[in-house]
Nucleic acid binder design. Structure first.
Lengths: 95, 95
DNA sequence: TTGACAGGCAAGTAGCGACTTGCCTATGGT
DNA sequence: ACCATAGGCAAGTCGCTACTTGCCTGTCAA
């Protein structure tokens, strides 16, 4: 089981999460293409694949295999831990 | 201006935030002592000082100088960005 | 069956980041 | 004035991590 915060500490991995937020359930090759064309991220397939492994072991991405395709789904629930660990002081209504 | 996620990616820095959550407004030396005795973190003063710089440049810590003391205050407001960037699907009541 | 496509594995490289080491500045007490 | 205390600066070391490179496995269509 990997480290949630380590997973979030990389620009490219955050771009992957952005991309999956925009369109969930993409394959590795789709993610590669859209990262380049829409996020200005240049990276090889292998690099992205490794990033996806990190995200998956942090619980931020779940995968689902179907034939020769592997679909990637974002799971934001681990992020809840962050807000719980360092609580926000209740936002004061402007007076 | 530093990187919020990079700042959170280190165990020791997260322990510092925990410590400031527990008792806000500590000096560098106080933080050093309490990290060792209460969080099992062994680190030199210089290491902690550098961590505090990272946290400050990420906006997670504000400092206030008074004489030869420098007090450190936690500021959790940058964390809000995280929840906004990757929104939680509204928690479904179990059906 | 053959080839194209989707993905996986593993070793090597290079740069960044955490930490150390040694010395310096500044404030306050006596 | 002197010294102890609180903190700062900067160069150097070392390990981790992102990325590359090269090759391999598995699926599907013709």
């Amino acid at each position: 089981m990997g480290d949630l915060f380590k997973a979030l500490s990389d620009r490219t991995r955050r771009a992957i999460l952005d991309e999956l937020t925009d369109r969930d359930g993409q394959t590795l090759f789709e993610i590669c293409g859209r990262l380049i064309s829409r996020h200005g991220v240049s990276a090889t397939r292998q690099a992205i694949s490794q990033h996806l492994d990190v995200l998956e072991s942090a619980g931020l991405v779940r995968t689902e295999r179907s034939g020769r395709y592997k679909f990637h789904h974002i799971d934001t629930s681990p992020l809840r831990e962050i807000g719980e660990r360092w609580p926000q002081p209740a936002k004061e209504p402007d007076k």
